[in-house]
């Protein structure tokens, strides 16, 4: 669920009390926080570091190491374009470029200015037979769509559809 107005420190308190002050649960704690905020706010990381008695650099080490974690806010829908081998060979980079272009992204930005869409590269989803593939996730994780056999045109349509869906 999305609880944007909550105080990160409070949420961290809840999550940590659920998992216990166990350093070994760090990844799960961060996953849980991300589920709430869609990303990891800086304050929450500081709070985690205090609560678990782990240095902030170590928390950041884990938060930046794994692909799942993000330190910046994301759009309502996240379009992951698969860059696995099969997808790459079947033209994933062209699809990715087309999607970025029609979403209006440039200069290394990954989230659109209206905050509706985020476009990112992803590792293999294991749907190689449908290459090239894109997976679309709503940022609260409640919706998940997979689109296969994409073309640049299909990519542009994808952006259009999800943008209008996000506006709803």
């Amino acid at each position: 669920m999305y609880r944007g107005r909550l105080n990160p420190r409070e949420v961290v308190g809840e999550v940590v009390s659920k998992y216990g002050c166990d350093r070994g649960r760090l990844v799960q704690i961060l996953q849980e926080i991300q589920k709430t905020f869609r990303y990891l706010p800086r304050e929450s990381l500081e709070e985690v570091s205090e609560k678990l008695g782990v240095s902030l650099s170590e928390v950041l080490n884990v938060a930046t190491f794994y692909h799942q974690f993000r330190l910046e806010p994301v759009g309502r829908y996240i379009i992951y374009v698969c860059f696995g081998t099969a997808c790459y060979l079947r033209g994933a980079s062209e699809v990715y470029e087309a999607i970025r272009r029609s979403a209006g992204l440039s200069n290394g930005r990954s989230t659109t200015e209206d905050g509706l869409l985020t476009v990112e590269k992803a590792r293999c989803f294991g749907c190689c037979s449908l290459a090239p593939v894109a997976m679309v996730l709503s940022s609260d994780g409640s919706e998940r769509y997979v689109h296969g056999k994409l073309t640049p045109q299909a990519g542009r349509r994808l952006v259009f559809n999800y943008r209008s869906k996000a506006r709803e």
């Binding site: 350093r23 070994g24 990844v27 884990v62 794994y66």
Partner: peptide
């Protein structure tokens, strides 16, 4: 549920991931 990193397929990295490290 791993947070996703290719290197986690390696045994010692996988263990590190479960222990909350990398």
């Amino acid at each position: 549920r791993s947070a996703g990193a290719f290197v986690c397929g390696e045994e010692t990295a996988l263990i590190a991931a479960i222990e909350g490290r990398s």
